[in-house]
């Protein structure tokens, strides 16, 4: 066989091996129940925030600790711990994708992706009134100094 053909075969075999090992490392999208059944395994938990249960986040003392309860579409609940700042639209997001593991009765997650409600189905006209109102009363912080004033 030609040298080049051997190399081709070896290279393709290597690529296939890479992909096979990748597939074994892939994770899955899970519910609370299935995540619980795979303790220690990295999964993507699809659930939402359970408003009725306590949420713990103290940005001042420890911005890297968020604890809340997640509830999935089947009604199962699990306590979630997240070691990063609370995502900004956390309370409004109807659905969350949490990447992490179920360990010792708690879901420790390393990443939370918030799912925004259908962003692209805005109603014509309605957003206009929102923006003009937002301009007048919202988002005004306590200090409204200009940059020059701050550079004392």
């Amino acid at each position: 066989m030609k040298k080049i053909h051997i190399i081709l075969l070896v290279a393709i075999a290597a690529a296939v091996a890479v992909l096979v090992s990748f597939l074994q490392a892939t994770s899955t999208y899970d519910t609370v129940a299935t995540a619980r059944s795979k303790p220690g395994k990295f999964v993507h938990l699809m659930a939402s925030w359970d408003k009725g249960s306590p949420l713990q986040y103290d940005a001042i003392n420890n911005p890297n600790f968020l604890s809340f309860t997640a509830i999935d579409t089947l009604g199962e609940k699990v306590k979630v711990i997240y070691n990063n700042p609370k995502p900004e639209n956390f309370e409004q997001a109807p659905r969350l994708v949490m990447k992490g593991k179920y360990v010792n009765g708690v879901f420790e997650c390393s990443n939370i992706q918030t799912k925004c409600p259908s962003k692209y189905k805005e109603e014509a006209g309605s957003n206009n009134t929102q923006t003009t109102q937002a301009g007048s009363n919202g988002a005004q912080p306590a200090s409204t100094r200009t940059i020059s004033e701050l550079s004392k």
Partner: peptide, 25 residues
């Protein structure tokens, strides 16, 4: 890394590496 500065009075302490975000008052 959030290791120094504001006193830590966590409800539940995480024993992993310190958080990567720092709050500045």
């Amino acid at each position: 890394y959030n290791t120094s500065g504001i006193a830590v009075s966590f409800g539940e302490k995480s024993d992993q590496k310190p958080g990567e975000n720092l709050t500045l008052v």
